[in-house]
């Protein structure tokens, strides 16, 4: 499989890369784990590729004002193994460890993954549960938006022409919070048939905060707010968890494919929400 021909540049400065994005026919190449397969299948045929993989200023993980800022080209391997991510935001490290396989985690990047917006990608569930923000940049401007506004639809994001993901911004987790990411994987590709990220904080023996992000179930990842509401104020007994988790698929227009029918996906979502919640709860302090 051979891609259509294209022009290639690999700037080492962010400003140079942004200046090259003015053309509609230009695509950004980060790790290439989504774009290159698409180009080989000729589902994408950009006339020019701007490889941002050599821009040192896009590869970072640092703590700043109660948040972790993770540069766009930070690989899944780097996120999974960063002591900072592991201690300050363990949910994201756990999610990264489940992506694809070792070789994909060596190349694939957090910015590339979210910009591609595959409805079965792993990161979105956790980023939604974390209420992350995305820092975006163009040659002329910068903005930061909530992750929930970033994912617009299947393979569609809020990125404007000429704009790229600069960083993903996640809150530093309160040490008493318990988190977990549970997924049913498609054995060949490693993509999530359904993936659920849960985040729970308790206070005075009751659940004070619950966040649930879901990927794979429908056209775009989403926060299961009805599950969250059902849990807040509950003690977290197995029956309460089961009841709340059962709400995850209510009103959802579920995906259906070779690997799982819509009904089966909804069933899996309920079971994996229950598991993610139970594990997150067991990790609360």
């Amino acid at each position: 499989m051979i891609a259509e021909n294209f022009e290639y540049s690999a700037p080492t400065k962010l400003d140079d890369a942004l200046r090259q994005l003015s053309n509609e026919d230009t695509k950004v190449l980060a790790g290439g784990m989504s774009l290159i397969p698409l180009m080989k299948l000729r589902l994408a045929a950009p006339g020019q590729l701007v490889d941002i993989g050599r821009i040192a200023d896009l590869n970072f993980i640092h703590e700043e004002g109660g948040t972790l800022r993770i540069g766009a080209t930070t690989t899944h391997y780097q996120v999974e193994n960063s002591p900072l991510v592991r201690s300050r935001c363990p949910l994201l490290a756990e999610a990264a460890s489940h992506i694809g396989d070792l070789q994909v985690r060596n190349m694939g990047t957090i910015g590339g993954s979210i910009a591609h917006a595959d409805p079965a990608a792993d990161y979105p569930a956790s980023l939604l549960a974390l209420e992350a923000r995305v820092a975006l940049v163009t040659a002329k401007s910068k903005r930061e938006i909530p992750i929930a506004d970033f994912f617009v639809d299947t393979f569609t994001t809020a990125l404007e022409p000429g704009e790229i993901v600069h960083a993903v911004v996640v809150p530093v987790e309160d040490q008493s919070t318990g988190t977990s990411y549970q997924k049913v994987l498609q054995p060949a590709s490693g993509f999530a048939i359904v993936g659920v990220a849960a985040r729970i904080r308790k206070s005075g023996g009751k659940i004070a905060m619950a966040r649930v992000g879901v990927t794979g179930l429908s056209g775009k990842p989403f926060r299961a707010t009805q599950v969250e509401k059902a849990l807040e104020g509950a003690a977290g007994s197995p029956s309460e968890i089961q009841k709340a988790a059962a709400l995850v698929s209510d009103g959802v227009d579920a995906n259906s494919d070779l690997h799982a029918s819509a009904d089966y996906r909804k069933h899996l979502a309920r079971v994996y929400t229950m598991r993610a919640l139970a594990i997150a709860l067991s990790r609360t302090a």
Binding site: M1, Y8, A10, L29, G32, M33, I36, P37, K40, D51, G53, Y77, D101, L102, Q103, V104, N106, M107, A188, S189
Partner: peptide, 26 residues
């Protein structure tokens, strides 16, 4: 050739990668 099987794995700057999913220019 779809980045699933790993038969094309080589190391680039010490990282194991699938060489069917990387352009030579990279």
């Amino acid at each position: 050739e779809t980045s699933l099987c790993g038969a094309c794995t080589v190391h680039v700057d010490g990282k194991a990668i699938k060489s069917c999913s990387m352009f030579a220019v990279q």
